[in-house]
Design a protein around this nucleic acid. Structure first.
Lengths: 332, 332
DNA sequence: CTGTTAGCGCCTTCAC
DNA sequence: GTGAAGGCGCTAACAG
């Protein structure tokens, strides 16, 4: 493998000059530059990034921790992060935290040990305190889809309360007055916020929230199915159903249909996340769009700004979701 | 940041000894090891991986190039690769090639310039010759989902011909004698092979392949819809439809239904890839399962074997797909 | 089993 | 504008 030394030799210049043309730093005569470039080409020289990193204390790579590397939501997120990073010439190192505290911490250590220039963390199990702690370390951290008050300017997150609100409001505006709700695990902040938004919308319409029409699922399809069945058993009559994510909504639609209900004839359903498969469902599912791509892109930009001092980057810290209206919602 | 030098000082040993305990290389007295470990803990020392890499000429990171970072197929693939690599303590650097030759080459250069210890490439546009060329370079390359004869032992691929064969056979065995086929772009080897398998199955059952009952799509949902409509117009009667991937199958199901056909009553459909959303379709789609996870895992293992000399690893180079039977197929 | 000694390949002040 | 020299933090022979 050719080294910078060989190049300087062939070009008849010093090693420092070669370094200058590679990094476009300092001024070099066009003529010398040409000589160097020619030598580089001839030798097929490629700078050794490990050496560059060691000397410059910059690895040009950022670590990304995300619950899973697959799935409609995380996939898009990861994709948009990488794409933005790649454009800026930065490498993306990925790991999956599996929503498990021990694994998440392990991955963070792993990434920190990889001398990443920055970290983009989409974590769910780890505590705010822990995040604060590592944020005080030497490597900049950006939090995706999580809001830690003290780290507000490092968080790129979604206004989940608003999401729950608009989802519900969409139903209310169409004349539905009896609504049921299938939530995610209540210990997850996201679930909690979405439900809060739901309640706010009800309140705004002068309706009471009925505990009996709420079911706590686990964000998995099966729990959606289970959920409607449970809700239907209450014999309380409802014409609208808000689900805290699309998987559960899909399960709920199946369950409702199995009970002889037609959608949206008897029951209007709205999901959350607006994930790709919503349009494969029958009828197509209305859902709360989370602007996943924009958030991922913004997280990458935040890194560019905070870790690589890229100027002129305006960071939008919170995103407001909106409802994508499809066939699963009818009017009363 | 504490360096190895500080640690050796505090522990009262030489720098080499510290290196030994870090890397578990060479033998160190339990007692000295303890001293070193204590010093490490006290200083919160963490080895600088860039320096380690530079000195050892090993970055412990492998580059992964895949068409997209999202989507049911690639997501799972990436996920299984990363998971296996992570277990072995290796970092995963990802990039997306977008099935574009220029981008794919660019990414490969990018990864090569990142001093990865090995590359896992899931490329579609780049030529065999180019792959051969880089395979002769210093960094080991493993090809995913692609078969380059001269690189056979470095390829982890699916027997697509067999996939097309079993998909078709599944229909034939259930009494369908008039079959239509919606293929992917014919220049893609995968499409070509799948279609070849389809023809072989027909032949085996003494049936002729009718060009008029074949439509070339582009692997996107819309082309599936378009495809059935085109096929239906031929007025040639067919009761079974094989699609070269699930997206097109989903589109085809919609299109067929729009034409008043019931599935599987009037038309049995089988897809390819057995991607997650197959079960959200109505009826659930039968599909050719590609063992994506196993292939990803195997690719990672191949890297462990070829780039990190992990012994005792048996590499399975080709995988045979099988059909997952669901409601979209009926008998005649 | 442990210490000494060279580099690994490059960046970055400094002089010239 | 260009060159010389020191050092980034660590690994890997060699000795001892």
């Amino acid at each position: 493998m050719a080294t910078i030394y060989k190049v300087s030799e062939l070009a008849g210049v010093s090693l420092a000059t070669v370094s200058r043309v590679i990094n476009k730093s300092g001024n070099v005569t066009p003529k010398t530059r040409q000589k160097v470039l020619a030598a580089i080409a001839e030798l097929g020289y490629r700078p050794n990034s490990m050496a560059q990193s060691l000397a410059s204390k910059r690895s040009n790579s950022v670590g990304v921790l995300i619950p899973e590397l697959y799935g409609p939501f995380f996939g898009i997120m990861l994709s948009s992060v990488e794409s933005e990073l790649h454009k800026a010439g930065k490498r993306t190192i990925v790991t999956a935290g599996h929503s498990d505290e021990a694994i998440e911490r392990d991955c963070i250590e792993f990434l920190l040990g990889s001398t990443c220039d920055a970290l983009i963390l989409h974590v769910q199990a780890v505590s705010d305190d822990y995040l604060l702690e590592i944020s005080e370390g030497p490597v900049p951290v950006v939090l995706l889809n999580r809001h830690v008050p003290k780290l507000a300017d490092r968080c790129i997150s979604l206004d989940n309360e608003h999401g729950g609100y608009v989802a519900t409001r969409t139903l209310l505006e169409r004349g539905h007055e009896k609504l049921a709700y299938i939530s995610g695990p209540s210990w997850k902040m996201d679930s909690f916020k979405r439900l809060a938004g739901h309640r706010r919308a009800l309140e705004e319409f002068g309706l009471d929230f009925d505990e009996r029409l709420a079911f706590e699922g686990d964000f998995e399809e099966a729990s959606g199915r289970e959920g409607v069945i449970h809700l239907l058993k209450q014999k309380l009559q409802f014409t609208g159903l808000v689900c805290a994510n699309d998987e559960m909504a899909a399960g709920a639609m199946q369950g409702a249909r199995a009970h002889g209900l037609s959608i949206p004839g008897d029951l209007s359903v709205v999901g959350y996340d607006d994930v790709a498969f919503t349009r494969y469902l029958n009828p197509q599912l209305s859902s709360v769009n989370c602007r996943i791509e924009e958030m991922g892109q913004m997280a990458a930009r935040a890194v560019l700004k905070h870790a690589y001092d890229t100027k002129d980057l305006v960071i939008q810290n919170t995103f407001k979701p909106h409802v994508m209206l499809r066939a699963s919602i009818g009017s009363r």
